Amino acid sequence: MEEDGATQGFWLFEGVWFVIRNIALAFWHVGYAITHPGLWLDWSNSEAIMRVVYYGGSVEFFFVAFTTFLVIAIAGFYNNRFLWGVVRGLEGFANTLGRVVAWFGLIMVLQQVIIVFMQRIFARSSISLGLGIPIEFDISWWSEELKLYNAMIVALCLSYTFVQKGHVRVDLVYSAVSFRTKRVIDMAGSMLFMLPLAVLIWMYSWFFLWRHLIVPNPSASEPLERLLMKARALRWNVETIGFSPNGFTAYFLFKVLLVAMTGLIFLHAWAFFFRSYLEWKEGPESEDKYLDKDVLDAPDTGGHQHAEI
């Protein structure tokens, strides 16, 4: 029993020391990356590409993000105005991106109409776009490209929809508890569900993306030294195979969107946690404070109120 207790104590100490050491090293890693940009920004060098591949899904990168969160949280707990500024910045970024990307829904509809007219009425097999040297692809290419617009709306408007409170909430106990208890549930949800899920998806999507961009294929289990050795044989092998002979040839963009979506989830988990904390601290009067929520202005017909989107 004593040996088991000593072993458990040793592993606990090792775990705590691992976290503390990596938090301390995070400052050095950020400083080194900023002062040596050529090691990872010079993509004419295959080793720089492999460093980006490795560090993008590494423990070091995780602790840089974790330490950034801790620094913002500590500063924000001391100065709530600063933390509100962070919340407004993150939510403003999500709102701006979502409002811009939402226009791709209109583009998708217009392109589908053009495809129908060109194919059924004008009996054309291809669509040419542009002046001088136009871009010309088969009808099936433009038809399959519609999936990209749909994927952009889903992936890049996800955090925007969350800010606008447009997601469906399965409520079992939430509506029956007090205001501050709701904020505690929100904080726990962002820490226990949103952030771990974002980290897990990021690990899969990051290497899933690079395996469709370069060869030899990188692996999440390979150390940096092995990836640098592979860099000698590195070459670009961007995925350009469509589902049909003349179909859409840029399916690697869907992998890019998956990584972008995960990053947005990660950032908004921070914003959601910080907002929930501030509303918990300041009370019910701070609910939806500074929230830039879209409102559809309805005509005044005598008693009708504004309808929220």
Results as ranks from 00 to 15, higher is better:
residue 276 S to G: 11
residue 247 G to R: 05
residue 241 I to Y: 04
residue 230 K to A: 09
residue 277 Y to I: 07
residue 228 L to H: 06
residue 197 L to S: 10
residue 195 L to M: 12
residue 277 Y to H: 08
residue 293 K to W: 10
residue 276 S to R: 07
residue 226 R to P: 00
residue 195 L to H: 04
residue 244 S to A: 14
residue 222 E to K: 08
residue 216 P to W: 08
residue 209 L to I: 02
residue 217 N to T: 08
residue 281 K to C: 07
residue 248 F to T: 00
residue 264 L to T: 08
residue 283 G to P: 13
residue 262 T to A: 15
residue 230 K to I: 00
residue 244 S to I: 08
residue 276 S to W: 06
residue 197 L to G: 02
residue 257 L to M: 04
residue 277 Y to K: 06
residue 237 N to C: 05
residue 286 S to H: 11
residue 225 E to S: 15
residue 230 K to R: 04
residue 198 A to C: 04
residue 225 E to Y: 07
residue 282 E to H: 14
residue 188 A to L: 15
residue 195 L to P: 01
residue 230 K to Q: 15
residue 249 T to N: 15
residue 188 A to N: 01
residue 273 F to G: 03
residue 291 L to W: 07
residue 219 S to L: 08
residue 296 L to M: 11
residue 194 M to C: 04
residue 270 W to L: 15
residue 207 F to C: 00
residue 204 Y to G: 06
residue 199 V to L: 14
residue 278 L to M: 09
residue 210 W to G: 01
residue 199 V to N: 01
residue 271 A to I: 02
residue 278 L to F: 10
residue 280 W to D: 06
residue 230 K to P: 00
residue 269 A to R: 03
residue 238 V to F: 09
residue 223 P to I: 05
residue 262 T to R: 02
residue 257 L to V: 01
residue 183 R to Q: 15
residue 191 M to E: 02
residue 276 S to C: 07
residue 235 R to T: 06
residue 242 G to H: 06
residue 196 P to G: 07
residue 236 W to I: 03
residue 191 M to S: 11
residue 249 T to V: 13
residue 229 M to S: 13
residue 274 F to L: 13
residue 278 L to S: 11
residue 289 K to F: 12
residue 238 V to R: 09
residue 222 E to G: 00
residue 211 R to P: 02
residue 273 F to D: 04
residue 210 W to N: 05
residue 233 A to W: 09
residue 184 V to M: 14
residue 292 D to C: 03
residue 287 E to A: 15
residue 235 R to N: 06
residue 218 P to D: 03
residue 267 L to H: 02
residue 196 P to E: 04
residue 294 D to A: 14
residue 294 D to M: 13
residue 221 S to R: 07
residue 271 A to D: 05
residue 284 P to V: 12
residue 275 R to F: 07
residue 187 M to I: 12
residue 190 S to I: 01
residue 230 K to S: 08
residue 202 W to I: 06
residue 288 D to L: 11
residue 295 V to I: 15
residue 230 K to L: 13
residue 238 V to C: 06
residue 251 Y to K: 12
residue 217 N to H: 10
residue 297 D to P: 06
residue 196 P to I: 04
residue 245 P to H: 10
residue 191 M to G: 02
residue 272 F to E: 11
residue 218 P to E: 03
residue 184 V to R: 14
residue 295 V to D: 04
residue 265 I to K: 01
residue 281 K to I: 09
residue 295 V to Y: 10
residue 214 I to G: 02
residue 261 M to Q: 10
residue 236 W to P: 03
residue 265 I to E: 03
residue 252 F to M: 02
residue 238 V to Q: 06
residue 298 A to N: 10
residue 261 M to S: 12
residue 270 W to R: 00
residue 268 H to W: 11
residue 239 E to M: 14
residue 198 A to I: 02
residue 184 V to A: 15
residue 249 T to K: 15
residue 283 G to N: 13
residue 206 W to E: 04
residue 268 H to S: 05
residue 268 H to L: 12
